[in-house]
Design a protein around this nucleic acid. Structure first.
Lengths: 214, 214
DNA sequence: GCATTCGGTGAACGCTTGTACACTGACTAG
DNA sequence: CTAGTCAGTGTACAAGCGTTCACCGAATGC
């Protein structure tokens, strides 16, 4: 069809590219301030389009925010896949998982920053979207735990509460990691070591767990 | 001095009252949107003063935010005191602590909402202030853990990482509790029960903890 | 009693904001 | 080749913003 050299793209392609640019610049802006304080005009300006053109792609900034959740969840999903792939050897699942966590955060700071910052941030729709994804993450981990503890008489309720605790510990580490390269004392290694020990502590707890009588 | 009936207050009193009102209305506004998206004019309007009068009390909204951290930390500090008072009996520290947590959150929703929402929110100064206070909280808990595990050969590093995990678990519960009365499935009892079991799991972990060889 | 302090006022400023509307011109489908 | 689509443009407007300034009048210190 096109013997033209390059550069020229179809209209659909061009649109997609602009859309992506809008998402990208917003993600970059969220690194400094929360989503609810970022204006449509600001995003449009950074993306190199006129404010009104924004509406060709998103109904509002809130709508863009919700889309951004999907976008920025990708690294986290990748993390699960990576962690699972390493698990059969089983040599040290925890150490392995924490290393993967560290790498993913390092390589996708903006995404994780967005997720942690907006998880309890201002925009309700975004909050809900993140919550849903995180729930999914927890339930995936619950399945994994079920496999590991198979036959040890764990109730699904207890499995879920354990997974929930582990996710909380990991997210705690993520937030600490994100603070590293912009201000305070702890360095990456310290944080990852602590996180590893925390997960190990939980694992020890699991080995002697007994449900409280109801 | 004043035989006048009532109502009349000294200038200093009146000023303090207005200042408090500014803090209060801001706290109320934060329940719906994040601090960085709340305008000075909005706060002044709700407090019943003209925008310019705001400056008689705070240099900027950011400064007000930092003050608000102190303000809203009070319930959390109270929580520590309450929890400690109950501890000598030792019958069930965890259950007791979680009950206190539940009550404090119920009775001081706005404060906890502010803290959790702005902990990773937009304004750097506020974030730092909250972080400092939370660190203090963790170190208090570390001291308590040191007392409990005295003579069991715990390194201060391990004590701190355990306290950190416990705080993460509790804050996780706080955030879930705050979502309760505005949208989703889990009810308060469910969340508190889960939190209790999580802390219990950690306690079990402690009972078999051994440091990984360095 | 008088001069001073100071919390609150009200008009005015220069800017930024979200959104409406009519438009243009390159791409596309027939 | 032509008619239509549609991402991006440019102007415009009302509303809100933070901040300035001169001003008021009641409480205060002496």
């Amino acid at each position: 069809m096109s013997e033209a050299v390059a550069k020229i793209a179809s209209r659909a392609e061009r649109k997609e590219r602009t859309r992506q640019k809008l998402l990208d610049v917003t993600l970059a802006l969220v690194a400094k301030r929360s989503l609810s304080s970022i204006s449509l005009r600001e995003v449009a300006r950074d993306a190199g389009i006129v404010p009104t053109a924004f509406y060709r792609h998103f109904e509002s900034m809130d709508a863009l925010g919700v889309e951004l959740v999907d976008e920025s969840m990708r690294p986290l999903r990748q993390m699960i896949r990576d962690a699972r792939r390493g698990s059969p050897t089983n040599a040290d699942i925890i150490k392995n998982t924490v290393e993967i966590l560290g790498r993913q955060v390092r390589e996708n700071q903006l995404d994780f920053r967005f997720l942690t910052r907006e998880r309890y941030g201002g925009v309700a729709g975004v909050r809900r979207a993140i919550d849903t994804e995180l729930r999914l993450f927890t339930s995936e981990l619950t399945v994994d735990l079920a496999r590991i503890t198979a036959g040890a008489g764990w109730s699904s309720d207890d499995l879920e509460m354990t997974a929930d605790l582990m996710v909380a510990a990991m997210l705690n580490a993520v937030m600490d990691l994100l603070e590293v390269d912009q201000r305070h004392a702890d360095d990456e290694r310290t944080i990852l070591d602590r996180s590893e020990r925390q997960l190990r502590l939980i694992a020890f707890g699991m080995s002697v767990w007994r449900s409280t009588p109801r």
